[in-house]
Design a protein around this nucleic acid. Structure first.
Length: 514
DNA sequence: ATCGGCTCGCGCAA
DNA sequence: TGCGCGAAGCCGAT
């Protein structure tokens, strides 16, 4: 059976033979046990790619179910006991569950959303389901507590257990090493990405799958880990209030879930992409806003990529074969689209590459040697302004542009891309040590940003301290040769007047701390 | 508002 | 050996 590329109307030379088995580079065995042929169902434990479409992990689980002629159970669980669990993160994820419940209805698969009511209550759920399963498939995600969780669960499961990488367009295992700069990674992509970007996941892997229906789940599951009900899935303030999570971090200024992600994507393609070259201007609303959805897997990067391709009426033959690391003229698209793909693919997947290969991705010691050396040399430099974590958190600095950016983060759950760099550079300048600056940035970003705890958040924060960068400009106090930024120059370069008044201390529309 | 100079390591073409 | 290139740098000149 010959099929054309599923991602786009494709004129590439690579002909797909059959698309159902996913690329083997995306499969990692988490144990060495066999599939149990007499199990009752196939289990897909959805922990990162929280969507029913364009999902290699789901596609792989469906493939097992078809091959074994067994029902498919999809478990999407949300724990309360992890660090930074809050109304903001819970609401976003639960809105995604409500969308997934609709998407899996009448799909032939059994969807089981579970919201843990108290820390520890969810323990044993996966093990109990696995005891009845033929095989367990889950998501491969390179950071936060997920790798640790899978490592802890793996030895307790009695059947084959596989993690599937549906993170990006390039399989994580396709890159042979960590890259020191975006430039070096771009060179690698210019050589290797064309071997992979036609291998897109099926948009709807359950379509015509004709899986046998599940007759029942074990009674113990219904009793101890009941399916989230409609009230829980509404994710209202009152239902969130019942959970032992941080209620001071209010819901984000945007909704979570597949539907909201599709709306954001549509809006971006229709109204923003063409003006994307103005992305550094905080008052031009042209950035995609897709990072939170990509983080929780509510949209796939393959889908976003496909929409850009369609909007640009692009064919793979337009790609340049030059391997020069240059941002411009690689794809053969408009400058705006090339700029966006540099974010979506080069920078996004660079961060995933780092986190998947460096267990110390969130440690100061993971910085390049030149950066650690220059920061060390300036460790005892006098700091003209020093703020504590609560000062930063409550936007109590002398710098109104900085305070505005921090208020945007706290109120909305996101911060403008360009200002986030200035935000971090000033935290470095105003902290007693670079290590304390790092810990402040991680705490604030992980707590308030919906897309925190993602490889790209770590890239952004560590870039402040020199990761993926190089020594730049004159040697300065505190910074050494780390790239410096100032609010004065940012205000000179960009239009920030409207931003300052929107997020100024006087605007109380959604204020938490004012 | 926009510009060039500052500065450096790397891969690759020559 | 020289050239082109780089996540968003700064500063002063026009």
């Amino acid at each position: 059976m010959r099929l054309t590329c599923s991602a786009f109307p494709c004129d590439c030379h690579i002909q797909k033979v059959f698309v159902n088995p996913i690329p083997s580079l995306r499969v990692t065995a988490l144990n060495s046990l066999p599939v149990r042929g007499d199990g009752e169902f196939v289990l897909y434990w959805m922990i990162a790619n929280r969507r029913a479409t364009s999902n290699f992990a789901l596609q792989h689980a469906v493939h097992w179910a078809k091959e074994l002629r067994r029902p498919l159970v999809v478990l999407e669980a949300l724990r309360v006991g992890y660090q930074w669990a809050s109304d903001r993160l819970h609401r976003f994820v639960i809105q995604g569950m409500a969308d997934n419940q609709r998407a899996f209805a009448n799909s032939g698969a059994t969807y089981w959303p579970y919201v843990e009511p108290e820390a520890g209550q969810g323990a044993g759920l996966v093990e109990r389901l696995a005891a009845s399963a033929c095989v367990v498939v889950t998501d491969d995600f390179p950071c936060f507590f997920l790798p640790r969780m899978l490592k802890a669960v793996a030895p307790r499961l009695p059947v084959k257990f596989e993690a599937i990488d549906s993170n990006g367009v390039l399989p994580l295992k396709a890159a042979p090493q960590v890259f020191p700069t975006a430039y070096a990674f771009r060179r690698f992509l210019q050589r290797d990405l064309p071997n992979h970007f036609c291998d897109a996941p099926l948009v709807d892997p359950l379509r015509e799958a004709r899986l046998p229906p599940l007759t029942s789940l074990p009674e113990e599951i219904h009793v101890r880990w009941p399916r989230a009900n409609d009230a829980q899935l509404a994710a209202s303030t009152s239902s969130l209030a019942l959970l032992p999570i941080d209620h001071n971090v209010k819901p984000a200024a945007f909704d979570g879930g597949y539907q909201a992600a599709q709306r954001a994507l549509q809006l971006f393609i229709d109204r923003k992409l063409a003006r994307y070259e103005a992305r550094n201007e905080p008052e031009e609303e042209v950035t995609s806003g897709l990072a939170p959805y990509l983080h929780f897997g509510h949209v796939s990067s393959h889908d976003v990529f496909a929409r850009v391709i369609a909007a640009e009426d692009w064919r793979p033959s337009q790609i340049s074969t030059k391997v020069n690391g240059s941002r411009e003229g690689w794809w053969g698209m408009s400058p705006a689209a090339e700029g966006f793909l540099d974010q979506l693919i080069t920078w996004r997947e660079l961060g995933y590459n780092f986190c998947s290969r460096r267990a110390d991705y969130d440690q100061f010691e993971s910085l390049p040697a030149w950066a650690q050396a220059t920061l060390d040399e300036h460790l005892t430099d006098e700091r003209p302004s020093v703020y504590s974590l609560p000062d930063f958190e409550h936007a109590r600095t002398h710098d109104e542009l900085w305070n505005a950016a921090q208020r945007q983060l706290v109120r909305e759950g996101t911060m403008h891309n360009y200002l986030r760099m200035l935000w971090g550079k000033k935290i470095l300048e105003w902290s007693p040590t670079p290590r304390e600056a790092l810990s402040t940035m991680l705490e604030l970003n992980n707590k308030y940003a919906v897309d925190g705890r993602n490889p790209n958040s770590y890239s952004g924060i560590f870039w402040i301290l020199g990761r993926y960068d190089r020594a730049w400009g004159p040697e300065r106090p505190i910074f050494g040769t780390i790239r410096y930024m100032s609010s004065q120059n940012t205000a000179r370069k960009l239009n920030v007047k409207g931003y300052l008044s929107k997020y100024g201390p006087a605007s109380r529309s959604r204020g938490l701390f004012d």
